[in-house]
Amino acid sequence: MQLWLEVIINIAFSYIASVGFALTINVPHRALNLSGISGVIGWMVYWVAARAGMGRMLSNLMGAFIIGILGLMFARIKKCPVTVFNIPALVPLVPGVPAYQAVRALVNGQTMEAETAILRVGIVTCAIALGILLSTMFIEMFYRSKRFYRKRHNRL
C-alpha cells in the first residue's frame, strides 16, 4: 500500500473513532471536532513513532503526551473540561486487540499466552497514563514559570 493512502486511512479512521466515542459519551457539540482532531494528532504521533521502530510503549507514551497537551490547550480555548477532549482522543490508542487476545487465551486455557497479552495490555495502559500525567505536569510547570517570571518582571 502506498504511504499517502496509508496516512489518509489512519487519519480518517482515528477521527471517526474519536468523534464516534465522543458522541457516545455525550461530549458537547462545540467540542466534537477538536476532540477528533486531538485523536488524529495523537494517533499519527503514535503511528509515526511505531513506524520509526520506537516500540509500543514509547509510541503510546508520545501519543498520549501530545493528546494531553492538546486537551489542555483545547480546554482553555473552548472553556470545557479537559476530559471532554482527552477521553475520546485516547480511544485509538487503547490496546483492544491484546486485551481480546488475553481473554481468548484465558478462555482456551492457554495461560502463558494470556500472561504475555495481559503484560502487553498493562504496559500500554501504563504508558498512556504516564503520557497524560507528564503532559499535565509539563503544562503546569510552563504556566507556573510563566507566572513567576511575569511577577518578577513586574517588580523590576
Rank of each mutant, 00 (worst) to 15 (best):
T125L: 04
R120G: 01
L133N: 10
R76Y: 02
C80E: 15
V107G: 09
P95M: 09
Q101G: 09
T83G: 09
L72A: 04
T111C: 05
G53S: 08
Q110S: 14
V82L: 10
T116D: 10
A89F: 00
M137A: 15
T111M: 14
L93M: 07
L130A: 15
G109N: 04
P95V: 07
G53D: 07
G68T: 06
K79H: 05
L72F: 08
Y143G: 02
A99H: 04
V107D: 08
P92T: 00
I66H: 07
L93D: 04
V97M: 14
M62F: 13
L58F: 13
L90R: 04
M62H: 06
I77T: 02
A127R: 02
I87N: 04
F142W: 13
R76K: 08
A99K: 06
N108Y: 07
R104E: 15
A102S: 05
F142G: 01
R56V: 13
A50I: 08
R76P: 00
Y149T: 01
A102D: 02
L61T: 04
A105G: 08
N86M: 12
A75Y: 00
T111Q: 14
I132F: 08
A64T: 07
N60G: 15
M141E: 10
Y100G: 12
N60K: 02
G55A: 10
G71C: 11
Q101F: 13
